[in-house]
Amino acid sequence: MEGMEILNALAVFSNYVLVPALTYGSQLALGALGVTLIYGVLRFSNFAHGDTMAFGTMVVILFTWLFQSWGISFGPLPTALLALPFGILVCIALVLLSDKFVYRFYRRKKAAPVIFMIASMGVMFVMNGLVRFIISPKDIQFRDGERFIIKAREFKQMFGLDEGVAIKVTQGITVVIAIVVVIALFWFLNRTRTGKSMRAFSDNEDLALLSGINPDKVVMITWMIAAALATIAGTLYGLDKSFKAFTYFMLLLPIFASAIVGGLGSPLGAIAGGYLIAFTEIMLTYAYKKVAEYMVPGDEWEADSLMQLLSTDYKFAVSFMILLLVLLFRPTGIFKGKSV
């Protein structure tokens, strides 16, 4: 049956590319939104963002363990979702402290962005050390509750296909939370007075000051939002894969790539960039053997290679390549952010 073959190919593609890339893209987008907001308002590339994600996630894990020890669970959903608000609050507190003790000093001195960036690397190392010290540098699984929304077997039975699409609970949660968070963020930025003043401040700092916009308040709110986004993105990533301090540090590259590709300072760009990086990364490193075999008519043909463009080891090279291409040909990114 010809039609079935194509549907099977589509199922394989969805299972291994579409669903994982949507999930990963949502996580990158949330991370990149934080980076892009900090860049827009505070005008520097925050290298500590990956480790802010790690710190927030760590607090979420600690609260998850505490809740589990009390016998509290969230039914089929991960307990970590209950712990998330606490993680966000503690992460906000830490980030505000880092602003009070590090960044504010440089703001007073009107330091150049590159100095802020290097200061943020210092903050990155401190946060990284803090996380490793408190929760260990090991790989940690903290997901509980149901594992699947739809299992591959159920999918096959439901649609009578040879191939199934499995959707994990964590994948569903990631996409749903990302959509809710993005809607809330855009509502805040476009509809509230404080959100508008943030955009105005990002647009033209001097004129914002002339208009009576309080820079301290704008900076504080930006940090709070960035910390919340970082904790959410980190927790979703950790639930979906696992938590490890080093992995979160490494996430900095695809997250920055996403923010820059979309256009630094542009929230819409960060989202588009996140999905673009996730899809290219996964599509370029996926082995298309099975998809191809379903797509080619006739039963006998068998691919004699994995049909994989790049080994998954080169995953990070993909973000780097996209980053380079964008910087060479469209330095302000897809959505015309600030040039870097």
């Binding site: 007075r193 508008k196 003043s197 955009r199 105005a200 647009d203 033209n204 001097d206 004129l207 914002a208 208009s211 916009i213």
Partner: peptide
């Protein structure tokens, strides 16, 4: 640099 370029005219006035 006397306007906010990436926000709307109305939002400029609001600011």
């Amino acid at each position: 640099n006397n306007v906010f370029p990436t926000i709307s005219v109305e939002e400029n006035l609001e600011m």
